[in-house]
Design a protein around this nucleic acid. Sequence first.
RNA 1: GGCUCGUUGGUCAAGCGGCUAAGACACGGCCCUUUCACGGCUGUAACGGGAGUUCGACUCUCCCACGAGUCACCA
Length: 485
Amino acid sequence: MDVQKPVTRFAPSPTGYMHIGNLRTALYSFLIAKHDGGKFILRIEDTDRERLVDGAVDIIKNTLKITNLRYDEGPDVGGDHGPYVQSERKDIYAEYAKRLVDGGHAYYCFCSKERLEALHSDDDTHGGYDRHCRNLSEEETKKLLASGIPYVIRQKMPLEGTTTYEDAVFGTISVKNEELQDQILMKADGYPTYNFAHVVDDHLMGVTHVVRGSEYLSSTPKYALLYDAFGWQRPVYVHLPLLMGKNADGSVSKLSKRHGSVSFQDLIKDGYLPDAIINYISLLGWSPKNTESEIFSLDDLIKLFTIDGINKSPAVFDFDKLLWFNGEYIHRLSFGDFLDKAMPFVNKDVIPENVNTEKMLSLLHTRISKFSEINDRISLFISLPDYSNDLFINKKNKVDIDLARKIINEATELEDVEVWDNDTIYSKLIAMSEKLGVKSGAVMWCLRIAVSGMAVTPGGATEIMEVLGKKESMRRIMVAAGKLA
RNA sequence: GGCUCGUUGGUCAAGCGGCUAAGACACGGCCCUUUCACGGCUGUAACGGGAGUUCGACUCUCCCACGAGUCACCA
């Protein structure tokens, strides 16, 4: 007999940006399916009509597209289990809710919001619904229904006993039934709640593994009971550890905006590469069996990913490590690709004509970890900063002001160089150091200071001069000569 | 507060009764070097606490502490 291939889904609400935690859920869900050659579905959960945000669905689709998390079924690709947008499935939920009522697993509730609020006024967070309408007679229900009073449909929880389910990550989870609220399945506006819709959809769409954040751990018994009420087979539950962020005071809390850029688009805007982001977040809550390297492509992850490698404890999102991954990915880009991706980040308006932009960027290729660093790093090519003569002093190369003056004066002869490129300038400077009888490092040091005005620069003296061009380089050398005179 | 879950270095983590407790990021040092970066080598640093079980616990059990999640006509 064939082992059933896994079917998983990613089911976000279109309420705004793609949070990095959501992306990680999508990734794991995708990987679980693909590791065993299964199917991955995208479903849009838009049952909360008030929180809908325009364009949010496009953000979701676009994110999955550029991260290569391809779905086999979904709103724009179709499939045998559509529609894949919950607001288009209202009839389905209504029908299944009715079935539950008829079977005695759910009931109509006519309680007003005011009444419900009064219930909570004593102790604001505890308590719950008092099951006021749970035992209305059939006649009373009929009458109320006919009268047009708004109603919801609630799930009828067992009053005693325990509900237990197996989670693939957390193991056996067991909750006393008396803890379970008669949760709302269908809202007064005719839309289902998440609690109900996702169960119906997951079953109808053949989802075998429900992958989601561990915030659902304690409400899952209610969903399991729903499966039971319908007589459906329960799916495999895979709850993922939470993603946390580090606060300024050192404590941690659920990853949110206060921790920095936590939406996928924020990170892209900041100059992170999708592959690097995917690689990093794959390791937040999961680790592979072999541990030689941590650099994984999506294909690597598909091969390596198994549920038993998922961790239980919450993971703190570490921007330093993400930055390291991103640097690795940038350094490994071919120069052509690097250029393509880097160019959009360059503020072209401020780059002088004499500067060779391509060569300038080549200096940055191995020196940046994210593209947004570019503009800070190239300031010296745009203008010569005001600097102090002390910058010329360098112990290692035995440079003092007198020597610097000598070297810079000698360097004015660079004016004779015909072909202004790195190699030519370099050999010229080497020859100069021999003539002067000083270490080549001393010459290089002084020239680098002169043309950059900075102690730390992307690239060495000759590289900077090449990028700057002869005219500007000579100008800067003359400035230095003047300062040292 | 009830319920549920978690706790290995600053962070991510391996470990699944016997180990000098991996590795990665960050941090320090050294080397390379035309500064920086890259690269190479190397160093500092951890099992929350207490009882058990066992010849032997980071690994199993219980209690405590701490942390988190959840108790919506939000998902």
